[in-house]
Computed example of a mutant assay.
Amino acid sequence: MLVRYKKALEKIAMGLISLMPQEKDIKRLMETIQQYDQNENWTLYLWKKGDEYVGTVGIVEEEKTAIIQHITVIPSYRGEGVALEMLQELQDMGYEHIQANDDTSAFVQKCIPILKEAD
């Protein structure tokens, strides 16, 4: 289940986002969280499985398109389809198009055909 980011989840969100190689630097990580806090069209969601937050997906919204800025899953849940479930739920929320940025394109491009099959 996607849960919209709020300040109370900041440490959890930072831990999840820091799993992305380009977000290892604490200064960059703080700037990323600020983007989600301050920009109206930037939205961060955390994926909750049971009582645990196991992934995150951050988007920039442009009309009915979700451009994936960040997508991570904690290592112990990788390979279980969590990221695909997050993208599917974005589609279910009404985003007609799921796109990637340079950092997420390799992964998102693998998921797009699977998402189209599910429609």
Results as ranks from 00 to 15, higher is better:
90 L>D: 12
69 Q>F: 04
82 V>Q: 12
29 L>T: 15
116 K>T: 09
68 I>M: 08
44 L>D: 00
46 L>M: 13
86 M>K: 14
21 P>Q: 04
53 Y>V: 00
85 E>Y: 09
113 P>V: 03
54 V>G: 05
52 E>C: 00
30 M>G: 13
39 N>K: 13
32 T>Q: 04
26 I>L: 05
83 A>V: 14
95 Y>H: 02
54 V>F: 02
98 I>E: 05
60 V>A: 11
20 M>K: 05
65 T>V: 10
26 I>N: 02
51 D>S: 14
56 T>I: 05
30 M>L: 15
73 V>R: 10
12 I>Q: 09
14 M>Y: 05
59 I>W: 07
13 A>N: 01
11 K>R: 11
65 T>R: 14
112 I>E: 07
73 V>K: 06
83 A>H: 05
13 A>I: 02
95 Y>S: 05
21 P>M: 13
33 I>W: 03
104 T>W: 06
90 L>I: 14
105 S>Q: 10
31 E>V: 01
25 D>T: 12
115 L>E: 06
53 Y>K: 02
66 A>V: 07
117 E>Y: 14
68 I>P: 04
2 L>W: 13
117 E>T: 15
14 M>Q: 12
99 Q>P: 00
29 L>G: 09
85 E>K: 14
105 S>R: 12
96 E>M: 14
41 N>H: 12
19 L>G: 03
13 A>Y: 01
39 N>G: 03
11 K>C: 07
3 V>K: 15
111 C>K: 09
8 A>F: 00
100 A>D: 09
80 E>M: 09
117 E>V: 15
49 K>P: 02
67 I>W: 12
90 L>T: 14
61 E>R: 12
23 E>W: 15
81 G>R: 10
33 I>T: 13
76 S>A: 01
83 A>K: 12
11 K>E: 12
64 K>M: 05
49 K>G: 15
80 E>N: 02
51 D>N: 14
96 E>V: 15
62 E>Q: 13
94 G>W: 06
28 R>P: 00
54 V>I: 11
26 I>T: 04
66 A>W: 13
40 E>N: 09
114 I>H: 11
4 R>N: 07
